[in-house]
């Protein structure tokens, strides 16, 4: 006889028992010990069929191949640039991955990307020791110019984007800003100063209230009246 002890979207703490019995399967951010499944983080419970997983309410970003992130150039080497990824691990952007055009050997790399420049990149490789390679070769990956960069907890990124990008589209439309959300929690907002400030506040509001239902309506109301 198996028993589930939590319901959908219930808040759980690390170590909380989620289910007893072998009929349930431990999903992300949970673990099994004997016949019990426990949570491994502070988060919201999600049950799909027999699988129980926890959506964290906070937590560090884990670099994944294919993720689009925003990084900052911290150093320039012979073969490319060192990039701060807003995690414990920096990434390398190799010269060959920086642009589609040919870069001559004697070219001054700082003319292409200088220290403290922010860039939008894709993660193309992560090793077990978290050595990261990034690339700027795909469409939309570029050096950031103008606007502002803000930081949110990376666990809140899906909420800021919304289902089928509904939330971020709403903010873009209402504020007239271009917005690029990095999976590492850095977000680039480009628009009028007023629009940028409103978008920033809306995103911060989502970060703070990500666990609540009816968030889209709240954000809409804020963007309608809050400026």
């Amino acid at each position: 006889m198996s028993e589930i002890l939590i319901e959908e979207r219930k808040i759980v703490v690390p170590g909380e028992v989620l289910a007893i019995g072998l009929d349930y399967v431990p999903g992300e951010n949970t673990y099994r010990e004997e016949d019990k499944i426990f949570s491994k983080v502070l988060g919201l419970a999600a049950v799909s069929g027999r699988v129980i997983k926890i959506t964290p309410l906070a937590g560090p970003y884990m670099p994944k191949v294919g993720d689009k992130i925003i990084g900052r150039i911290t150093d320039i080497a012979f073969s490319g640039w060192r990039v701060d990824t807003n995690t414990a691990y920096s990434a390398m952007l190799n010269v060959k991955d920086a642009t589609t055009r040919f870069i001559k050997k004697e070219e001054d790399l700082s003319k292409i990307l200088a220290i403290d420049d922010y860039i939008i990149v894709d993660i193309i490789n992560v090793t077990s020791q978290r050595l990261i390679d990034v690339s700027m070769r795909e469409l939309g990956l570029k050096k950031i110019q103008g606007g502002r960069i803000i930081e949110i907890n990376s666990q809140k990124v899906p909420r800021v984007i919304g289902k089928k990008a509904s939330m971020i589209t709403l903010i873009k439309e209402k504020t007239g800003c271009e917005i690029t959300v990095g999976q590492n929690g850095l977000i680039w907002i480009l628009g009028s100063p007023e629009g940028e400030a409103a978008a920033e506040r809306a995103i911060k509001m989502i970060e703070e209230k990500s666990h609540l239902s009816g968030l889209t309506e709240q954000v809409e109301a804020f963007l309608r009246g809050g400026r």
Binding site: E194, E196, A197, E200
Partner: peptide
């Protein structure tokens, strides 16, 4: 320079 601040 436009007499503005990030947080308005």
């Amino acid at each position: 320079l436009q007499n503005k601040r990030l947080d308005m």
